[in-house]
Design a protein around this nucleic acid. Structure first.
Lengths: 113, 113
DNA sequence: CGGGATCCCTCAAGATACTG
DNA sequence: CAGTATCTTGAGGGATCCCG
């Protein structure tokens, strides 16, 4: 878990934000929640714009926080699959609300959509 | 709203994350949701660790996205009060879930608390 | 007291290349 | 294909000062 500069350190919200702080983490969880299990490359294609390094790093941190599973098939070429852990799945309700909030407030700004 | 590098740009979750992307925004909303109305200095004291520049900046962006109200009293010394807009208040359920999630998962890691 | 502007520097993140 | 290491850059953010 990242260092937290707040004196709000002993605040549950701060804790949650520190775990999910990485720029891409919510999105990675979100995509996995929709797709179930994805290989590294698939995940990467779903997050166009993310760099190789970034993705590896975020995945490693998410795994360390036990939010995602990493299943490695020892073969050539390598194959690694990622999926949500039970703990990771408990974040889905939050993402659902974020999704709902986004739908509600976004459409007002962009009538096109 | 910030530039978004994702092709997930047309995704509600991405939209939400882009609006609340700043490091302190969730926290600012959270504090205002608990306190109602706060002056600049009070807000700052509640977010120990945040710098002057950061706070101003985040507040300005939140105001631009219509998540907070800024009420300025034209007097010397100046007095400015911040509070949530209606739109800002619609984020509270998300923060409640984050709070709940933090409580649930944090205590497991830190038995002391 | 609230907030803007300026200077300056660190560190996050990109690019690239290499390995199993 | 998945992951790591190294080097590099630039912009995010800190410190400081000034102004209404």
């Amino acid at each position: 878990m990242k260092e937290c500069k707040l004196n709000l350190y002993d605040c549950p919200v701060t804790y949650t934000l520190s775990v999910l702080g990485g720029k891409w983490k919510w999105l990675i969880i979100y995509i996995l929640s929709g797709e179930g299990t994805l290989r590294y490359g698939e995940l990467r294609r779903n997050l166009s714009g993310i760099t190789h390094k970034m993705l590896s790093q975020q995945l490693k941190e998410l795994e360390a926080d036990q939010l995602i599973n990493r299943k490695e098939y020892h073969q050539i070429p390598p194959k690694v699959e990622y999926s949500l852990t039970q703990k990771g799945q408990t974040l889905i309700p939050i993402l659902d609300l974020m999704c709902y909030w986004g739908e509600t407030n976004w459409s007002k700004v962009n009538p096109d959509n």
